[in-house]
Write a protein that binds this DNA or RNA. Structure first.
Lengths: 236, 236
DNA sequence: TATAAATATTGATTTACATCACATTTTACA
DNA sequence: TGTAAAATGTGATGTAAATCAATATTTATA
């Protein structure tokens, strides 16, 4: 009951940002928990450090205990942030695909993170023997897929103001869970997150400020008129 | 061995178009096959008919026996084709997500299709009891997720020429498996598939024709210079 | 604390693509 | 088979957002 309520308050729509908490570990037997226990390490990553690099071998599934991580794809020139993950989420599930155990994206710590690295073979083994666990993994993958598709669609439809409004709403509702939050992202990162250039982001933020939709003070952004912001997000 | 070879020849990159064949049914016991047998219907959809509508209840998982289907998201004004699926693929897997048994996208037949509709509860039951089956479903979901992410990234990076080159390569390599193919899509549909306007698609096709990259004769398109097309796709 | 480097901001210019308008061809169907 | 409707094709125009350029501010560090 509480859970379904929780899910309803989560802004899913076109959001970049994940709040889906991995419930799968609750489904494990003591024996399986022990297997994970024996095949894991917990690492701490500092702000700016790389958790995994696109193209490298994925020998582990990563579980973010706490912190904030950006997941992004990159090529020579550009990069696109696929999502931003707070604690409770997993990285590298797509490496479960048979014959493709390579990270398809990179991950970088926005804030200091505690990350649990679980051996991918142990993970696969438990999937093979525990259907309830497998079902939860399926749930997480479905959630990811829906989110990515929805965000893709929204990305193709909306233009700059809508996109940035979207991003601000998601940061506020899904990540910081607060109207006012300290944005420890550079304008460049906010631009990547939104799919715009830093200059455009700055211009739009200024406009939002002039229209009293947000208040900016240093790195702190406070959303004053969420209704208007939602309208901008919906309209385009 | 043959399988890994098959996978290598499949152009994955930024392709709209799926070739991933659902292997999962091979993992079923006789009993489970019987359960599916008792809880399925096979329907034939004519060209242009809707297989499922975004927002409607997903009471079935659909397996495309043969034909060609477009999967797309839509709102009042626009639509984005997420992928094009030939026979061997499944529709509606994301409805497996607990508490979200609604289609997130619509599906329409490009060609006449034979579709097997399997009751979603039977499907979920088998996932719960057969880990090998669940594992295959995980494989398919991973494949879908990787494809969607890659396509999203590519969409944000490439511009019109690269996008259309991409689409043509995928049609040729993954769908029709032939350098020359009869394009039973309108320019409007090709535009939707590529994320451009019909006018732009026409202009670019004319340019490709003028540069001897393709030959067009009525509805038939033949790729004359695949290398050049790949270069355009890679370059942008 | 001074200086360099990175980041943020503002304005001018460019550009890729959409939009619009209209002509032509193909397809549907009465 | 003839006519309307839909699809295709082409040119002119508009525009959102990128790019470019130059300055101001913040942050890093020697």
């Amino acid at each position: 009951m509480t859970q379904s309520l929780k899910k309803e308050t989560h802004v899913r729509n076109s959001c970049t940002l994940n709040k889906a908490i991995a419930d799968c570990f609750e489904k494990l037997t003591d024996e399986e928990l022990l297997l994970f226990e024996e095949n894991h390490v917990v690492l701490t990553y500092k702000k700016g450090e790389t958790l995994c690099k696109q193209g490298s071998m994925a020998s582990h599934i990563m579980y973010i205990c706490c912190g904030l991580v950006k997941i992004y794809m990159e090529n020579e020139n550009n990069s696109l942030i696929l999502k931003v993950l707070p604690g409770g989420n997993m990285i590298g599930l797509t490496a479960l695909l048979e014959g493709s155990n390579v990270f398809k994206y990179s991950a970088m710590a926005y804030q200091e993170c505690k990350v649990r690295l679980i051996d991918i073979n142990a993970f696969k083994k438990v999937i093979s023997q525990n259907s309830a666990f497998a079902k939860e993994v399926i749930n997480i993958l479905c959630e990811n897929l829906i989110q990515t598709q929805t965000r893709f669609f929204s990305y193709t439809q909306k233009q700059s103001y809508g996109k940035l409004a979207d991003t601000l709403i998601c940061l506020s509702c899904n990540i910081f869970k607060c109207d006012a939050f300290e944005l420890n992202l550079t304008r460049k990162e906010l631009a990547e997150l939104t799919g715009l250039t830093p200059e455009s982001v700055i211009r739009i933020l200024s406009k939002f400020k002039a229209d009293n939709i947000i208040v900016m003070d240093g790195k702190t952004i406070q959303i004053m008129d969420m209704a208007k912001l939602k309208m901008i997000s919906d309209y385009g």
